[in-house]
Amino acid sequence: MSTIEDYVARIEETCGEEKDYIVIFKYDLRDQAIAKILNKAKMEKSISRIIFELTFEKISFRLYGTGKAIFRNLKDKEELQKVLANLLL
């Protein structure tokens, strides 16, 4: 049974007025994580396959081809964990 931790290396809460979460996927599994996310989330826009602007369960976020994602306007880390679980598992 896989877990979020299988895919996620680190979660950083950004400083600044925007309390964003940056999710950094594990290098070895980042392509798998990106594929899973692209499969489940709705693509709003893509820039040269480097940045994907996506929505999922009314949450908008950006996914980067480098294996990082930025989630904003989330209530807390718990909500982020739920969204990640629904996207990745």
């Binding site: 925007e18 940056i22 480097i50 940045i51 950006r62 980067y64 081809g65 480098t66 930025i70």
Partner: peptide, 12 residues
């Protein structure tokens, strides 16, 4: 664009 998005974009 938020500064964090700018940083992530440039990182790529």
């Amino acid at each position: 664009i938020s500064s964090h998005d700018v940083a992530l974009f440039l990182d790529s």
